[in-house]
Structure formats: C-alpha cells, structure tokens
Design a protein around this nucleic acid. Sequence first.
DNA 1: GTGTACATGTAAAGTGTTACATGATTTC
DNA 2: GAAATCATGTAACACTTTACATGTACAC
Lengths: 188, 188
Amino acid sequence: MDIKTLCLGILSLGDATGYEIKKMVAEGSLSFFSEASYGSIYPALGKLMEQNLVTCVAMVQDKRPDKKVYSLTETGREELTRSLRKDPDPDKNRSEFLATILFCESVAPERVTALIQDRIIEHEDKIATLEGLLAGEMTPASRFVVEYGIATQKAALKFLQTHQGNLVGTAAKGAANKLKEVGTPAAE
Amino acid sequence: MDIKTLCLGILSLGDATGYEIKKMVAEGSLSFFSEASYGSIYPALGKLMEQNLVTCVAMVQDKRPDKKVYSLTETGREELTRSLRKDPDPDKNRSEFLATILFCESVAPERVTALIQDRIIEHEDKIATLEGLLAGEMTPASRFVVEYGIATQKAALKFLQTHQGNLVGTAAKGAANKLKEVGTPAAE
DNA sequence: GTGTACATGTAAAGTGTTACATGATTTC
DNA sequence: GAAATCATGTAACACTTTACATGTACAC
C-alpha cells in the first residue's frame, strides 16, 4: 500500500495533520504493520491536494508553522473505496533478527543468546504498548487490528521463551568452532 | 538487511547460484521474512564479486546460460560476521490486509468477511508449506526459524478464526450505512 | 542548558521492483 | 500447444529514507 492510500485511509478515520498521521503510523494502531516518514507523508498530502482527494484548512499559529488539517473529500473517499476493492498484496515481513539467527554459524553463541533475550524484552514492551492502546476509545476495527497484533506478538514471545535453548545446545557448538577460525585468521 | 548481506548470509549456508538464492528467498526457510527479486540479486552478486567477497565458478551448459555457482571467500565470511555484529533493525511488517480491515468503514461488510476467509486459507497453506520444510534435512537454526514462522502463522490463523465475528457484528452495520452514502452520491 | 515535542517542508541519495530481452526443455 | 522450470542479466521507474532547513516552548 503506497503512502497516498495510507493517508487517505487514515483521514477516513478522522481529520488529521501530517504530523498526526506520522504519529499514528509510528505509535498508534497502525504501528506494527506499516511505516512512513515525513519525507513521504508531506509530499503525498501535497499530491492528494492536487488531485482534490483531500482538502486542507490552515490553522494559523504564531511562532510555529501553520498547522494544516487535512480532510477527505467525497472524491477521496470514493478513491479509497476503489483502492480497497483490489485484493490486498500479501503481507511483507522483514526480520533482520530471524536472518541473524539463521546465519548464526557466523555469530558468536553468546551473541545469539543475548539477541534472543533482547528480543523477548522488546516483545514484552510492544505487547504492553498495544494493550495500552486498548484502554482508550476504539472502533471495533482498530480493536480487532490491535488485538491481532497482541496475539501474534504473544505467540512470538512464547516461542522465544520456550525454544531459546534449542539453538544454544546444538548449533552453538559448531558456531563456536567456526568463529574461532574467523576470529583468529593469523593462526592460518 | 540489504540484498548484498542477504546473499552473503545465504552463501554462508552453502554455495549457490543467483537462481537458487531467489528460490530460497521465495520458497525456503527465508520465505516468510525476506524478499528479493532477480533484479536485485544479480547486481548484488556482481558487486560482491568486485569486492572479492565471493568467488564464482561458471558451469558451462549448452542451450542455457552458464550456471554461475557463487562461494563465500574468507573475506566475505568476515564481512558477514561484521554485518551481523550490528544490532538487527526492528522487524518491518507491512500488511495491506490489516490496513484494509482498519479502514473497513470504506469497504462493504461482505467484502471484509470474504477477505478474512481468504486470509484463513492463505495461513493454512503457508503453515502446510512450512511444515513441509521441516520434513527435509535442516540445521537447528533453520528449524528454529521455520518453527517460529509456524508458531506466528498459527497464532494469526487462530485469531482470525475466533474473532472474525467481532467485525461483522458491530462495525459492519455502520459500514453498511457509510457505504450507502458513498455508493449513492446522487442522493445528496 | 539539554532534550523532547511541536510543525512543515525539500532535495539528494539509495534501494529495490517491474518489465524487458533471450531461449531450450519438460510437463500437462 | 500452453505453461512452468531452468538461467542470467539490464534499464527505467517508483518509492522511500536521510539529512537538511527553521524555529518555539516546555520540562528536567
């Protein structure tokens, strides 16, 4: 989903500024399955304006740039509906963590253990954040999405907690040897 | 993780051609947490050659382009180790499916139901594929990674099966009204 | 005083995907 | 005879991130 459609979607939930859109993507219900930087949001809103898919009211603030509140137009809502009619692309999950684990023969075993420990904490934090969101007012749709996030995060957490030993016991030995070779090239 | 590092990592598990790397990313243990197209893999291997991080043996085949089998050099393995020493970036999950659900006020309720049904089947297929991988020979690391994938896919599947009613019961009514508005702008 | 939050925006640089080009062999 | 598999590679295009530019206000 490109940033323009994402903005259209977020605006369909309520008027917002570019700054607020960024916050929703970074910390709100969308935070665990989408991303966007200012450098993509502001130009996207500009193009959406040109196409008359959104309108914008500038709120003058002194000592600060005008706050521009964007709203979806009727045409914008229709465009969004059209976009959402297309079958969604399959999910794209990129995980450097899992890649590192997979290539762990090139990584010190203590490092693998530490990585998993860190990851466990990150999952716990993420779950806490998502559960915090549930405390606020939510539409059924955003509740569904956040609870989906919690469910998958919890599954990942549980997996790491119960399987972390699987790597250290067996692969790590081989890794330790490999590492010795790489770590002391002078010995060759 | 950029494609060059990904190639280095895959080659650390064994020699491979560009074509085979693509297959591993598309169908192997890496398939649920990374992606790469030929248009990125071949140029990456070329750069890796220039930097002497990999070597390449061309196997002549008639009626076909030479099959180029790439191998990691010592320098390449060191470079990989260096890359993996950096803390992995947080996972990036992009889901058009969840975005569509979140913006479902702009989507017909039957469409939401159908979307979830499709997604359930996709998860079941994905789980079957991953379980198929477990049948073959695997290192502990790739087993770990594939089982992680199965665990999270199953959690998502179960969530969809048990919560699909949550959206249709409540949000859908509102959506139906909203949609009527959008669907019949002439009425305004 | 140092850092964070507020607030918008541009330009350069990087990275990657899509489509194209080429062509035999095997399976349905 | 159509489609998939094998096999490599380039070029145009799309999209995004990063860094920069600008500045106030408040909390610690």
